[in-house]
Structure formats: structure tokens, C-alpha cells
Design a binder for these strands. Structure first.
Lengths: 230, 230
DNA sequence: TGGTGCTGATTTGTACACAACATCGTTGGC
DNA sequence: GCCAACGATGTTGTGTACAAATCAGCACCA
């Protein structure tokens, strides 16, 4: 696969993955190859190429005669993914870190501004988008491509589940506001570390926040078990 | 994809990946979809599904009108992959380690025996196979699936290149014997650590050996640049 | 002699028809 | 009324023909 075909593949792949992460395609949703083929004005074949990759990476599961379903993750698997993600987070500052230039520093400052605006007018959707943009900005701090790739995998797998439980339909408006507050602190801390070029600190701060984020998620899940109907 | 289709997919995928890692398909080799289809008694379609995954994971590169070529890796990319691999190696003992039972301990002891036999009658092929088996045995020490998956990716990507340069046609018989010697020490050390259930030590020993292995690789590459025809 | 364009062969990428399979409603027997 | 078998419908998996792209060889000309 090369040239134009490759470009189209990447375009569709990135778009579908984003839809999954932002919960436009929530866990359990059924996709139809033919619908996607029509949307992207092609046949099923190239679509199936994309879906195959998304399935290999664990976002989807195709079942013969039924459809391709967006996966959900049980809390046990999520814990495994999170533990690894915590470890990898720290490596941003240790493996081939890129000294941030003025543009990069401005970009982090801009993130903080967006986040402050979000605190004033909370929105689940805007939060999800900001969270994702911030992640991608973080990734520009290392030039270690395998680390980038694996971090992306872990990010997309965990964040969509986290988003669903912490700030989605399951959660209240208070939990959304609370999570945005925590996120503002993370962005502020990291922006400050970037501003003085302390990339190792960036990794450590990120690591701490990812770990805390998961701890809150588990705590909330525990409450549900106690109070919930299930 | 499910049931029988899934099983066939996994079978072909695993086999082809092993061929790539063991250098049956050396870097630069061109594969033909139709040949593979014939070998596995099916059409191009399921084969393409496998090749797509191998391409996504970086082992192959399909070029329209040319063929699918086994990839090579430049020393710079290899360095990035190795750095990450060094970090992940240590995590075996830290993320959901599984306390080895008697069978597991025997398996590690058996590896040591095989390795000692290999010292007496060196063989590039047998070394490659043993190295791979040992890796898979190591992976049984953690139940963290994402860690297993990522470790596998990094292992297969680096080992085939390492094997080619350190013990393949490029290397002399002395380097092969030397590498087998180093490997015996690694296997011995790790088997000892496993025997007393010190999984954290297993990770640290492994980390050290992976790092040293890459250091030797780079040193040898440096010599080539000085002495070689290129 | 060297270079340039063409043509045929080869190989991957795409489209489409059909097979395999799962689901659900219906119908018949009891 | 209930349950089981069956068929209709919808969806993914497979096979195959064809399109698109690359490359090597060769003829042809300056």
C-alpha cells in the first residue's frame, strides 16, 4: 500500500479512531462496512483494510454474520492497560526528549488558556477534544517513534473508557466539573515544567496524574457497585 | 473475524512472523501474495489480511505494482526501538508478575541445558530458535497482556536485525560463539533468579543484558564502518 | 554510444458477486 | 398456549476479475 491509497487509509483510520475515542461510536455500537464504504465513497475493500487494523489494535471486534462492534473493556483489563500507561508516561521525558522551542512553549500555554475557558463553561465534548489535543502535544516532546505509537495505543484504549465512565452519561455534572478541575491542574503543572525546559519533570508529573486519574476512576466504579442497580 | 477464520489467521500470521524473525525471509526479500495463497491453500484475500497486519506492525511494506518487501531498519530507528525495549524489559518483574511454579522453574532450567548444548555445537539457526523460545518463556512471567504484546513487537523487530548483524552472514563464527556465550550467562542468571522467585531481579537482569547486547551491536557496526567496503 | 519512450509482463489495489453464518419473526405441531 | 423448526433478512468472510502501477527490455533516434 503506497501513495494515494496509503493517504486515504490513514485519513479514514485516524477519523474512525477519533470517533471511537470521542464516543461518537460508543462501546457496543455496531458499524456496517457498507455504510462506511458509502460515506467515504469507495467499496468495502479499503474499508475492511481500516477495520482490520482497528480490530487488531483492539478498538473493534468483527463477528461473522453479525457486524463489527465497538469494544468495551472490563475493569481488570483496564487496570493492566493503565499500569503500563503509567510507566510509559514517564518515559516521555527520558527517551530522546526534544528541547521545546518558543512555539512549543506557546502551544502549552495555549492549552492552559483553553482549559481555563473550559472550567467556566464545562462541556463533555470540548473536554474530550482538549484532552486529546493535549495528549498529542505531549507526544511532540519525544522523537522516539515506537514510544509515540505505544503511548497512542494506550491513550486511545483507556481514555474512551475513562471518558465514558468519568464524564459521560454515567457521570454527573459534578464529576465532569471535578475532572476538568484536575485536568487544569495537570495542564498548568506541565506547562510550567515545559516553560523551564524540565522535560524529566514533565514525565513525572504526567505519570502522577495518569495514576491519580485511574485511582479516581476505580473509586467511582466502587461506589457504583455499592449503590448501583447492578 | 471469528472462529475458524480467526484461527487460520493467527496460524498464518504467527508462522510468517517467525519466518521473518528467523531470517527465513531476510530483509529485502520480496513476497508474492499468490505464492502464499497457494501455500496455505486459500485465495489472496485472507493472505492480504495477514500481510496488512504485518505491514501495520512494520515487518513488511507493500508497494503497488512491485511486491511486499521484508523491511530493514536503519541504525537510528533501531536505537529508538532498543531504548524502549530496555525500559520495558524491566517491567516484566514489576507489572503483575506471576510467581513461578515448579514447572516454570524446570522450564527455565531446561533452557539453560539447551543453551549449554548450543555452546558445544554452535548453530546460527538453533541459536535464533532458542533465543525466541526463551523470550516467550520470559513472557509467561507476567500476566499483563498489553506489556506482552508490546514486548513481542519490540522483540521481533530488534531481534531479526540483531541476528542478521551479530550472528548472520555478516558475522564471523567467532562472533556467533561469543554471542552464544553471553546468552548462556543471561539464561543462567535469569534461571537462578527464577529459581528463588526473585522476579524483580529477573527484570533487572534482562534489562542489563538487552542493553549490553545492543551496545555490542553498535560497537560491531562501528568497526564495519571503519573497516568495511562501504 | 547514450538516452528516451514504448510495450509487455508482473504484482498489488479495488470492486463486486457469492458463500457462510447469525438473528429474528413466523408457522406448524402438539 | 408453548416450543421447536424453518425460512427470510442482514452482515461479514472469500474468491475472482479487472484496474492501476511499476519495471525491465528493446527499438529507435540524435
Amino acid at each position: 500500500m503506497t501513495g494515494e491509497a496509503r493517504a486515504r487509509f490513514e485519513r479514514i483510520y485516524t477519523l474512525l479512531r477519533e470517533r471511537i475515542c470521542l464516543l461518537d461510536y460508543p462501546p457496543g455500537m455496531r458499524l456496517r462496512e457498507e455504510d462506511l464504504a458509502e460515506e467515504f465513497d469507495t467499496s468495502r475493500t479499503p474499508i475492511r483494510r481500516v477495520l482490520a487494523r482497528l480490530e487488531d489494535e483492539g478498538y473493534l471486534r468483527s463477528v461473522h454474520g453479525v457486524g463489527t462492534i465497538v469494544t468495551d473493556i472490563d475493569i481488570a483489563s483496564l487496570e493492566q492497560v493503565y499500569r503500563l500507561r503509567v510507566e510509559l508516561s514517564e518515559l516521555i521525558g527520558k527517551l530522546s526528549p526534544i528541547e521545546p522551542d518558543e512555539d512549543a512553549k506557546r502551544a502549552f500555554a495555549g492549552m492552559k488558556t483553553r482549559c481555563e475557558a473550559l472550567v467556566r463553561t464545562p462541556s463533555q465534548r470540548a473536554f474530550a477534544q482538549l484532552n486529546m489535543d493535549f495528549f498529542h502535544l505531549l507526544m511532540t516532546l519525544t522523537e522516539n517513534e515506537p514510544l509515540q505509537e505505544f503511548s497512542e495505543r494506550l491513550y486511545y484504549q483507556t481514555t474512551r473508557i475513562w471518558l465514558k465512565r468519568a464524564a459521560g452519561e454515567d457521570g454527573t455534572e459534578e464529576t465532569l466539573a471535578s475532572e476538568i478541575g484536575f485536568f487544569l491542574r495537570e495542564v498548568s503543572d506541565i506547562a510550567a515544567a515545559v516553560a523551564c525546559g524540565a522535560l524529566e519533570s514533565v514525565g513525572q508529573i504526567r505519570r502522577a496524574h495518569v495514576a491519580m486519574s485511574f485511582a479516581r476512576l476505580k473509586e467511582r466504579a466502587g461506589e457504583e457497585v455499592e449503590a448501583g442497580p447492578l
